[in-house]
């Protein structure tokens, strides 16, 4: 169990994120078919595969700072994903990297600070608010839970686990929402009753972090 997020953890995190997405690709497709354009599964799978490949090839973790690595990932997400998800996930990592800066490890509190900054960048690009039925509805409570756990003195394992639980709850809470951002907003009332695909993939991102932390 890692006690801080190092570059090794981050690289493993992305690999695990891709693994989960690849396995759940059909599920994401199904969600995006219901209220979107059916590309979120393949899009995330294809894009993350590229990001992970670059990360592994370049052995990017070895010397860079954590901030540099997160920004590197942010840039790769931008050029690999496409769609709405690409720039938004990219913003999350670019924002997080900017705050992580020259550090080489993040404790739970620093991780929360960093991700909170990432979320702010995501909102700067996409203007999502709570309840708009987007990935923000999974990510925001997750970062909030992480912050809370860190403030309560929890270790990294426990803090990320509560973040994941909050993401899952946030994802489920998107089902009854009427979409106000992204493609699902075109559907009006018909968007109600479906889980948001971006909230689902964002939850996978948080779960992958739990796994990566547990593994190291």
């Amino acid at each position: 169990m890692a006690t801080a997020v190092t570059n090794e953890v981050i690289i493993d995190w992305l690999a695990r994120f891709h693994d989960i997405v690849a396995k759940q690709r059909a599920y994401l497709t199904e969600l995006d078919s219901a209220i979107g354009d059916a590309d979120h599964g393949v899009n995330m799978d294809r894009g993350l595969a590229q990001v992970v490949e670059t990360l592994t090839q370049q052995d990017a973790g070895s010397d860079a700072s954590t901030g540099a690595l997160l920004q590197h990932i942010g840039n790769d997400l931008l050029t690999s994903l496409g769609g709405a998800a690409g720039p938004l996930y990219s913003a999350l990592f670019l924002g997080a990297g900017a705050v992580a800066g020259e550090r080489t490890r993040l404790d739970p509190g620093e991780l929360a600070d960093s991700l909170r900054a990432g979320l702010a960048e995501l909102v700067r690009r996409g203007s999502a608010e709570s309840g708009d039925k987007t990935m923000f509805d999974a990510l925001d409570p997750a970062v909030e839970a992480l912050r809370q756990a860190a403030d309560d003195g929890a270790g990294l394992g426990q803090a990320t686990a509560s973040a994941a639980a909050a993401a899952v709850a946030g994802r489920e809470a998107t089902a009854p929402m009427l979409a106000r951002k992204g493609r699902a907003s075109y559907l009006g009332e018909r968007s109600i009753g479906h889980v948001d695909p971006g909230a689902a993939s964002a939850t996978m991102l948080v779960i992958a972090l739990v796994e990566a932390v547990a593994q190291e």
Binding site: D39, L78, L81, G82
Partner: peptide, 11 residues
């Protein structure tokens, strides 16, 4: 052109 139904990327 992006992937099918997927916006292209800035690069």
């Amino acid at each position: 052109p992006g992937a099918v139904f997927t916006s292209p990327t800035p690069d």
